[in-house]
């Protein structure tokens, strides 16, 4: 859908963000393609929210360079105006009602679409009289989605936009996100743990683990870039050989591994002969394979 040759919307080079002695981001170099939907995946604490805050200009890298549409976003009003960040824990003034929020939003986003905001507010059934501060988790998420989409910002960032939403509301979000993106193409970056559910929406995928980027690729290339291999440990180990193992679970004589690289026909026929099962790893399998503390995971099985 997008033109690979266009300048990236976001360029990060060697970005590190330290909090005391911990690096929340550790030497991150990444381009985010303009006009595409990119998913930011990784376990809790991997650095997703920190990365998004730095791109939106709300936080500043300890070292490294950050460019959004060609400029350093930090406290840079024109650049920040082209970015809409929907945080999972957005705070609003105590007395604010829905009308106050919807009146304030266009002041920050010059492409604000009032008609879209009204449509979404009605669809999510957001209460007009309740103070926004007293909204439920799901209502808060819905309001974030309204603000993110109706801002039509050239770079729109959603940090786990679905918290507290039921399946129907989430499906409505995916529908309206895709519809509005197709009508008004723009750069969208979103973080999610609902990988199986949201991966079809994504063109690019970035996987963060412990502040570092472990994968950044087209979603279609990442799916099937690893495989699940399971069966008797001796047979599994013989089959896998010196391939790179991303995750292993061993219980008794049984093993289940996530192994880097796609399965070829040769490996498949070897596996069939050895009674080992090979299936393509989903994006969810791949994300789950990173950052697992194997010794901790196996304590449960032994006891």
């Amino acid at each position: 859908m997008t033109d690979d040759s266009a300048a990236p919307a976001v360029r990060l080079h060697g970005v590190t963000r330290s909090f005391r002695r911990v690096n929340a981001l550790d030497n991150v170099t990444l381009d985010i393609q303009a006009g595409a939907i990119t998913g930011l995946l990784g376990r809790n604490g991997a650095g997703k929210t920190t990365l998004m805050s730095i791109i939106a200009g709300h936080d500043r890298a300890t070292s490294g360079s950050v460019e959004v549409h060609g400029h350093d976003p930090f406290e840079n009003a024109p650049t920040m105006a082209a970015v809409s960040l929907v945080r999972d824990n957005q705070r609003y003034p105590d007395s604010f009602t829905l009308a106050n929020v919807l009146t304030a939003a266009p002041l920050f986003h010059k492409r604000w679409d009032r008609a879209l905001a009204d449509e979404l507010v009605a669809a999510f059934r957001l209460p007009a009289k309740t103070a926004v501060k007293k909204y439920s988790r799901g209502q808060m998420s819905s309001l974030g989605i309204v603000l993110g989409l109706a801002s039509r910002a050239p770079l729109t960032i959603f940090d786990e936009p679905y918290l507290g939403l039921d399946a129907t509301a989430r499906r409505f979000f995916y529908d309206v996100l895709m519809r509005d993106y197709l009508e008004h193409p723009r750069t969208i970056l979103l973080s999610t743990h609902l990988i199986d559910e949201m991966e079809p929406l994504l063109e690019h995928v970035v996987i963060l683990e412990a502040g570092r980027i472990v994968r950044a690729a087209a979603a279609d290339d990442l799916r099937g870039s690893a495989m699940n291999v399971s069966g008797l440990t001796t047979a599994v180990d013989a089959l896998v050989g010196d391939r790179r193992v991303l995750q292993s679970r061993r219980i008794g004589a049984l093993s289940s591994l996530v192994v880097d690289g796609p399965a070829d026909d040769r490996l498949r026929s070897d596996a069939a002969r050895a009674g080992v099962e090979i299936t393509p790893a989903s994006l969810q399998d791949l994300v789950a394979a990173y950052g697992v503390d194997e010794s901790a995971a196996l304590e449960g099985a032994r006891s």
Binding site: M1, T2, A36, I37, R171, Y174, D175, M178, R179, L182, P200, L201, L202, E203, A218, A219, D220
Partner: peptide
């Protein structure tokens, strides 16, 4: 069209195009 299929299936248009 690519866009119709993308909107209908909630699939990224790049994937539909592929």
């Amino acid at each position: 069209s690519t866009n119709e299929l993308a909107a209908f299936h909630r699939i990224n248009p790049a994937t539909v195009g592929k």
